[in-house]
Simulated assay, not measured.
Amino acid sequence: MCDDEIIAAAGQARDLVVAYPEHMSDWARAVGHQARALAVPVRHAESRFAGNELMLSVDEEAERCVARRDRYGRIMTQSGPGQAEHRRDLRICLVGQPRHHQAVNPATVAALADAADALDVALDLRFLDAADSSPDSVSELLTWCDGVVLPGGDVANAPLQMIVARKALDLDKPTVGLCLGMQSMVTVFAQVRMGLRDMTLAELDPQAPVFSFESMTHPDGTSVRKLGKNKLHCVETSDLGRALGTQPFVRLNHRYRLAPTLVPSLQAAGLVVAADSADDGVIQAVELPSSRFFCGMQGHPECTSSRGQPHVLLTRFFEKAGQQPERIGS
Protein backbone atom coordinates (compact mmCIF):
# COMPACT_ATOMS: atom_id res chain seq x y z
CA MET A 1 0.00 0.00 0.00
CA CYS A 2 1.17 3.52 -0.73
CA ASP A 3 1.02 6.26 1.92
CA ASP A 4 -2.30 7.67 0.67
CA GLU A 5 -3.88 4.19 0.69
CA ILE A 6 -2.72 3.59 4.27
CA ILE A 7 -4.21 6.89 5.43
CA ALA A 8 -7.48 6.25 3.55
CA ALA A 9 -7.78 2.78 5.09
CA ALA A 10 -7.09 4.19 8.55
CA GLY A 11 -9.86 6.72 8.07
CA GLN A 12 -12.36 3.99 7.22
CA ALA A 13 -11.33 1.39 9.80
CA ARG A 14 -11.96 1.41 13.51
CA ASP A 15 -8.34 0.42 14.10
CA LEU A 16 -5.48 -0.04 11.66
CA VAL A 17 -2.06 -1.26 12.76
CA VAL A 18 0.86 -0.39 10.48
CA ALA A 19 3.96 -2.35 11.49
CA TYR A 20 7.35 -1.16 10.33
CA PRO A 21 11.02 -1.98 11.05
CA GLU A 22 13.17 0.36 13.10
CA HIS A 23 14.99 1.81 10.08
CA MET A 24 11.65 3.14 8.74
CA SER A 25 10.80 5.21 11.84
CA ASP A 26 11.12 8.53 9.98
CA TRP A 27 8.73 7.28 7.28
CA ALA A 28 6.20 6.17 9.91
CA ARG A 29 6.27 9.55 11.64
CA ALA A 30 5.82 11.36 8.30
CA VAL A 31 2.76 9.24 7.45
CA GLY A 32 1.43 9.95 10.93
CA HIS A 33 1.74 13.71 10.40
CA GLN A 34 -0.09 13.45 7.06
CA ALA A 35 -2.88 11.44 8.69
CA ARG A 36 -3.30 13.94 11.54
CA ALA A 37 -3.51 16.75 9.00
CA LEU A 38 -6.54 14.94 7.56
CA ALA A 39 -8.08 14.52 11.04
CA VAL A 40 -7.26 10.79 11.18
CA PRO A 41 -6.38 9.86 14.80
CA VAL A 42 -2.89 8.38 15.10
CA ARG A 43 -0.97 6.79 17.93
CA HIS A 44 2.69 5.91 17.59
CA ALA A 45 4.11 2.93 19.46
CA GLU A 46 7.65 1.68 19.65
CA SER A 47 8.80 -1.63 21.11
CA ARG A 48 12.16 -3.18 21.83
CA PHE A 49 13.66 -6.01 23.81
CA ALA A 50 15.69 -5.24 26.90
CA GLY A 51 17.14 -8.65 27.58
CA ASN A 52 14.07 -10.89 27.60
CA GLU A 53 11.64 -8.08 28.48
CA LEU A 54 9.49 -6.57 25.73
CA MET A 55 9.33 -2.83 26.36
CA LEU A 56 6.61 -0.62 24.89
CA SER A 57 6.34 3.14 24.57
CA VAL A 58 3.18 4.78 23.19
CA ASP A 59 3.26 8.39 21.95
CA GLU A 60 6.67 8.87 23.58
CA GLU A 61 5.38 7.97 27.03
CA ALA A 62 7.74 6.25 29.44
CA GLU A 63 8.59 2.68 28.49
CA ARG A 64 6.91 -0.17 30.31
CA CYS A 65 7.35 -3.92 30.21
CA VAL A 66 4.34 -5.55 28.52
CA ALA A 67 5.59 -9.11 28.03
CA ARG A 68 8.57 -11.40 28.49
CA ARG A 69 10.30 -13.84 26.21
CA ASP A 70 10.55 -17.30 27.76
CA ARG A 71 13.42 -19.73 27.26
CA TYR A 72 11.71 -21.13 24.15
CA GLY A 73 11.46 -17.70 22.51
CA ARG A 74 7.71 -17.26 23.07
CA ILE A 75 6.40 -13.80 23.93
CA MET A 76 4.44 -14.32 27.15
CA THR A 77 2.18 -11.79 28.85
CA GLN A 78 2.02 -14.06 31.88
CA SER A 79 4.23 -16.77 33.29
CA GLY A 80 3.96 -20.32 32.04
CA PRO A 81 4.36 -23.45 34.18
CA GLY A 82 7.72 -23.81 35.86
CA GLN A 83 10.05 -26.71 35.51
CA ALA A 84 9.33 -28.02 39.00
CA GLU A 85 5.63 -28.31 38.25
CA HIS A 86 6.14 -30.80 35.42
CA ARG A 87 5.77 -34.52 36.01
CA ARG A 88 8.71 -35.58 33.82
CA ASP A 89 11.12 -34.34 31.21
CA LEU A 90 11.09 -35.12 27.52
CA ARG A 91 14.36 -35.22 25.60
CA ILE A 92 13.98 -33.94 22.05
CA CYS A 93 16.56 -33.64 19.28
CA LEU A 94 15.84 -30.78 16.86
CA VAL A 95 17.91 -30.79 13.67
CA GLY A 96 19.32 -27.41 12.73
CA GLN A 97 21.38 -24.51 13.98
CA PRO A 98 20.33 -23.05 17.36
CA ARG A 99 20.59 -19.49 16.02
CA HIS A 100 18.31 -20.29 13.09
CA HIS A 101 15.62 -21.75 15.35
CA GLN A 102 15.95 -18.95 17.88
CA ALA A 103 16.26 -15.88 15.65
CA VAL A 104 15.22 -16.71 12.06
CA ASN A 105 12.40 -19.23 12.37
CA PRO A 106 11.36 -19.52 16.03
CA ALA A 107 7.96 -21.11 15.28
CA THR A 108 9.17 -24.71 15.61
CA VAL A 109 10.64 -24.28 19.09
CA ALA A 110 7.62 -22.27 20.23
CA ALA A 111 5.19 -24.92 18.93
CA LEU A 112 7.12 -27.68 20.69
CA ALA A 113 6.92 -25.68 23.90
CA ASP A 114 3.16 -25.26 23.42
CA ALA A 115 2.77 -29.03 23.12
CA ALA A 116 4.99 -29.63 26.16
CA ASP A 117 2.92 -27.22 28.26
CA ALA A 118 -0.33 -28.90 27.18
CA LEU A 119 0.97 -32.33 28.24
CA ASP A 120 2.63 -31.01 31.41
CA VAL A 121 6.13 -32.15 30.51
CA ALA A 122 9.45 -30.32 30.70
CA LEU A 123 11.07 -29.94 27.30
CA ASP A 124 14.78 -30.78 27.26
CA LEU A 125 15.73 -29.59 23.78
CA ARG A 126 19.07 -30.18 22.08
CA PHE A 127 20.06 -29.08 18.59
CA LEU A 128 21.95 -31.12 16.01
CA ASP A 129 23.89 -28.73 13.81
CA ALA A 130 25.56 -29.75 10.54
CA ALA A 131 28.80 -28.33 11.94
CA ASP A 132 28.77 -31.05 14.61
CA SER A 133 27.15 -33.98 12.83
CA SER A 134 29.77 -36.71 12.81
CA PRO A 135 28.41 -40.30 12.82
CA ASP A 136 29.35 -40.57 16.49
CA SER A 137 27.56 -37.36 17.48
CA VAL A 138 24.42 -38.36 15.58
CA SER A 139 24.38 -41.81 17.21
CA GLU A 140 25.04 -40.34 20.65
CA LEU A 141 22.27 -37.75 20.39
CA LEU A 142 19.71 -40.18 18.98
CA THR A 143 20.51 -42.66 21.72
CA TRP A 144 20.04 -39.94 24.33
CA CYS A 145 16.81 -38.43 23.03
CA ASP A 146 13.19 -39.56 23.30
CA GLY A 147 12.22 -38.21 19.90
CA VAL A 148 13.48 -36.41 16.79
CA VAL A 149 12.12 -33.32 15.01
CA LEU A 150 13.04 -32.71 11.36
CA PRO A 151 11.90 -29.14 10.67
CA GLY A 152 11.19 -27.16 7.54
CA GLY A 153 13.80 -24.89 6.01
CA ASP A 154 16.40 -24.69 3.28
CA VAL A 155 16.90 -27.80 1.15
CA ALA A 156 20.61 -27.59 2.02
CA ASN A 157 19.58 -29.12 5.37
CA ALA A 158 18.13 -32.22 3.68
CA PRO A 159 21.34 -34.33 3.62
CA LEU A 160 21.74 -34.09 7.42
CA GLN A 161 18.01 -34.65 7.91
CA MET A 162 18.19 -37.82 5.83
CA ILE A 163 21.15 -39.11 7.85
CA VAL A 164 19.17 -38.53 11.05
CA ALA A 165 15.94 -39.98 9.60
CA ARG A 166 17.77 -43.13 8.53
CA LYS A 167 19.21 -43.60 12.03
CA ALA A 168 15.86 -42.83 13.67
CA LEU A 169 14.11 -45.37 11.43
CA ASP A 170 16.73 -47.97 12.32
CA LEU A 171 16.30 -47.30 16.06
CA ASP A 172 12.50 -46.95 15.79
CA LYS A 173 12.88 -43.57 17.46
CA PRO A 174 9.71 -41.43 17.40
CA THR A 175 10.21 -38.91 14.59
CA VAL A 176 8.15 -36.04 13.24
CA GLY A 177 8.83 -34.16 10.01
CA LEU A 178 7.62 -30.68 9.09
CA CYS A 179 7.63 -29.67 5.40
CA LEU A 180 11.24 -30.41 4.34
CA GLY A 181 11.36 -32.85 7.25
CA MET A 182 8.55 -34.94 5.77
CA GLN A 183 10.33 -34.92 2.41
CA SER A 184 13.51 -36.21 4.06
CA MET A 185 11.62 -38.93 5.93
CA VAL A 186 9.79 -40.23 2.86
CA THR A 187 12.97 -40.19 0.80
CA VAL A 188 14.81 -42.26 3.42
CA PHE A 189 11.88 -44.67 3.67
CA ALA A 190 12.03 -45.23 -0.09
CA GLN A 191 15.80 -45.71 0.02
CA VAL A 192 15.80 -48.11 2.97
CA ARG A 193 12.52 -50.01 2.78
CA MET A 194 12.07 -50.06 -1.01
CA GLY A 195 15.70 -50.31 -2.08
CA LEU A 196 15.57 -47.15 -4.19
CA ARG A 197 19.10 -46.04 -3.31
CA ASP A 198 19.24 -43.29 -5.96
CA MET A 199 15.98 -41.70 -4.78
CA THR A 200 16.31 -38.05 -3.76
CA LEU A 201 14.57 -34.67 -3.87
CA ALA A 202 14.31 -32.86 -7.20
CA GLU A 203 15.13 -29.61 -5.41
CA LEU A 204 18.31 -31.15 -3.97
CA ASP A 205 19.55 -32.84 -7.15
CA PRO A 206 17.65 -31.95 -10.35
CA GLN A 207 19.80 -34.43 -12.32
CA ALA A 208 18.97 -37.46 -10.16
CA PRO A 209 17.47 -40.47 -11.98
CA VAL A 210 14.41 -40.71 -9.75
CA PHE A 211 12.65 -38.21 -7.48
CA SER A 212 10.69 -38.69 -4.27
CA PHE A 213 9.40 -35.10 -4.42
CA GLU A 214 8.98 -33.26 -7.70
CA SER A 215 8.20 -29.65 -8.58
CA MET A 216 4.58 -28.61 -9.10
CA THR A 217 3.90 -26.79 -12.36
CA HIS A 218 1.07 -25.16 -14.28
CA PRO A 219 0.19 -26.54 -17.74
CA ASP A 220 2.42 -23.84 -19.28
CA GLY A 221 5.37 -25.09 -17.24
CA THR A 222 5.54 -22.25 -14.73
CA SER A 223 6.09 -23.11 -11.10
CA VAL A 224 3.23 -23.59 -8.64
CA ARG A 225 3.59 -22.59 -5.00
CA LYS A 226 0.97 -23.75 -2.52
CA LEU A 227 0.79 -20.93 -0.02
CA GLY A 228 -1.42 -20.01 2.91
CA LYS A 229 -4.22 -21.75 4.75
CA ASN A 230 -5.20 -25.05 3.13
CA LYS A 231 -8.08 -27.38 3.95
CA LEU A 232 -7.16 -31.03 4.41
CA HIS A 233 -8.98 -34.15 3.32
CA CYS A 234 -8.16 -36.49 6.21
CA VAL A 235 -8.05 -40.27 5.72
CA GLU A 236 -10.14 -41.75 8.53
CA THR A 237 -8.56 -45.20 8.24
CA SER A 238 -5.27 -43.60 9.31
CA ASP A 239 -4.58 -42.90 12.99
CA LEU A 240 -2.93 -39.60 12.13
CA GLY A 241 -5.68 -38.81 9.64
CA ARG A 242 -8.36 -39.23 12.30
CA ALA A 243 -6.40 -36.98 14.66
CA LEU A 244 -5.91 -34.32 11.98
CA GLY A 245 -9.67 -34.35 11.43
CA THR A 246 -9.94 -32.26 14.62
CA GLN A 247 -7.67 -29.60 13.03
CA PRO A 248 -8.34 -29.96 9.28
CA PHE A 249 -6.38 -26.92 8.14
CA VAL A 250 -2.65 -26.33 7.75
CA ARG A 251 -0.45 -23.45 6.60
CA LEU A 252 1.42 -24.27 3.40
CA ASN A 253 4.49 -22.84 1.72
CA HIS A 254 5.90 -25.35 -0.73
CA ARG A 255 6.65 -25.81 -4.44
CA TYR A 256 7.31 -29.56 -4.40
CA ARG A 257 4.98 -32.52 -3.93
CA LEU A 258 5.30 -36.21 -3.25
CA ALA A 259 5.56 -37.79 -6.70
CA PRO A 260 2.13 -39.32 -7.45
CA THR A 261 3.67 -42.23 -9.38
CA LEU A 262 5.60 -43.23 -6.25
CA VAL A 263 2.60 -43.37 -3.92
CA PRO A 264 1.33 -46.91 -4.74
CA SER A 265 4.80 -48.37 -4.12
CA LEU A 266 5.18 -46.45 -0.86
CA GLN A 267 1.81 -47.72 0.32
CA ALA A 268 2.68 -51.29 -0.65
CA ALA A 269 5.83 -50.94 1.47
CA GLY A 270 3.79 -49.83 4.49
CA LEU A 271 3.70 -46.04 4.38
CA VAL A 272 0.18 -44.63 4.76
CA VAL A 273 -1.27 -41.40 3.37
CA ALA A 274 -2.96 -39.63 6.28
CA ALA A 275 -4.18 -36.48 4.54
CA ASP A 276 -4.12 -34.61 1.25
CA SER A 277 -5.21 -31.18 0.07
CA ALA A 278 -8.96 -31.01 -0.40
CA ASP A 279 -8.57 -28.78 -3.47
CA ASP A 280 -6.07 -30.71 -5.59
CA GLY A 281 -5.14 -33.97 -3.83
CA VAL A 282 -1.49 -33.08 -3.14
CA ILE A 283 -0.41 -35.34 -0.28
CA GLN A 284 0.02 -33.39 2.93
CA ALA A 285 0.61 -36.01 5.65
CA VAL A 286 2.02 -39.53 5.91
CA GLU A 287 2.62 -42.04 8.68
CA LEU A 288 4.27 -45.41 9.15
CA PRO A 289 1.90 -47.52 11.31
CA SER A 290 4.48 -50.24 11.92
CA SER A 291 6.75 -47.78 13.75
CA ARG A 292 6.33 -46.25 17.19
CA PHE A 293 5.86 -42.87 15.49
CA PHE A 294 7.19 -41.88 12.07
CA CYS A 295 4.90 -39.15 10.78
CA GLY A 296 5.26 -36.02 8.70
CA MET A 297 3.30 -33.14 7.25
CA GLN A 298 4.15 -31.27 4.06
CA GLY A 299 2.80 -28.04 5.53
CA HIS A 300 3.70 -26.09 8.65
CA PRO A 301 1.58 -27.19 11.63
CA GLU A 302 3.97 -25.29 13.88
CA CYS A 303 2.53 -22.07 12.40
CA THR A 304 -1.00 -22.83 13.62
CA SER A 305 0.04 -23.91 17.10
CA SER A 306 -0.46 -21.59 20.03
CA ARG A 307 -0.28 -21.65 23.79
CA GLY A 308 -3.25 -23.66 25.00
CA GLN A 309 -3.95 -24.95 21.47
CA PRO A 310 -0.93 -26.96 20.31
CA HIS A 311 -1.11 -28.79 17.01
CA VAL A 312 -2.31 -32.38 17.32
CA LEU A 313 0.63 -33.71 15.30
CA LEU A 314 3.05 -32.43 17.93
CA THR A 315 1.06 -33.57 20.95
CA ARG A 316 0.77 -37.06 19.46
CA PHE A 317 4.50 -37.05 18.79
CA PHE A 318 5.22 -36.11 22.40
CA GLU A 319 2.84 -38.76 23.70
CA LYS A 320 4.67 -41.46 21.73
CA ALA A 321 8.10 -40.06 22.58
CA GLY A 322 7.18 -40.12 26.26
CA GLN A 323 6.57 -43.87 26.15
CA GLN A 324 10.27 -44.72 26.26
CA PRO A 325 10.72 -48.14 27.89
CA GLU A 326 14.30 -47.40 28.92
CA ARG A 327 16.73 -44.54 28.72
CA ILE A 328 20.45 -44.60 28.18
CA GLY A 329 22.50 -41.83 29.73
CA SER A 330 21.34 -38.90 31.80
Results as ranks from 00 to 15, higher is better:
217 T>N: 10
223 S>F: 00
128 L>F: 09
98 P>V: 06
293 F>C: 04
11 G>D: 09
243 A>T: 05
65 C>R: 15
290 S>G: 05
185 M>W: 04
19 A>F: 11
61 E>W: 00
187 T>C: 05
105 N>A: 09
44 H>R: 11
1 M>A: 09
120 D>E: 13
19 A>Y: 11
164 V>T: 03
311 H>G: 03
89 D>E: 12
193 R>I: 00
263 V>R: 14
65 C>V: 13
272 V>L: 03
39 A>E: 14
236 E>V: 07
67 A>E: 08
36 R>Y: 08
214 E>I: 10
27 W>T: 10
34 Q>G: 03
322 G>Q: 10
179 C>N: 06
54 L>Y: 03
179 C>Y: 01
202 A>L: 01
231 K>P: 07
254 H>M: 03
98 P>K: 12
297 M>W: 02
37 A>R: 15
141 L>V: 14
126 R>D: 12
109 V>I: 12
312 V>A: 09
317 F>N: 02
286 V>D: 00
57 S>C: 08
223 S>M: 14
91 R>W: 06
227 L>G: 06
110 A>W: 00
128 L>K: 07
37 A>N: 14
313 L>E: 00
204 L>A: 13
68 R>G: 08
113 A>N: 13
136 D>Q: 13
330 S>H: 14
244 L>H: 10
263 V>N: 12
48 R>M: 08
103 A>Q: 15
90 L>E: 10
144 W>N: 11
305 S>T: 02
263 V>G: 13
18 V>M: 04
95 V>P: 04
298 Q>R: 04
269 A>V: 09
219 P>N: 02
201 L>I: 05
65 C>M: 09
208 A>L: 01
96 G>I: 05
24 M>Q: 14
261 T>Q: 13
220 D>C: 08
43 R>N: 11
213 F>D: 01
261 T>E: 15
185 M>Q: 07
16 L>E: 02
296 G>H: 02
294 F>D: 00
286 V>F: 01
276 D>M: 02
273 V>W: 12
198 D>L: 02
282 V>M: 13
27 W>E: 14
190 A>V: 01
302 E>S: 09
252 L>A: 13
228 G>S: 05
18 V>L: 13
53 E>C: 11
264 P>Q: 13
116 A>Q: 04
158 A>C: 07
103 A>E: 13
220 D>F: 04
289 P>M: 01
30 A>L: 15
46 E>S: 10
187 T>A: 02
212 S>R: 01
228 G>W: 09
80 G>M: 10
167 K>A: 14
57 S>M: 05
15 D>M: 01
74 R>S: 14
143 T>W: 01
283 I>D: 07
268 A>Y: 08
197 R>E: 04
138 V>H: 06
28 A>E: 08
234 C>G: 12
24 M>E: 14
287 E>K: 02
212 S>A: 15
298 Q>I: 00
26 D>S: 15
200 T>P: 00
229 K>F: 08
126 R>N: 11
36 R>V: 14
166 R>Y: 00
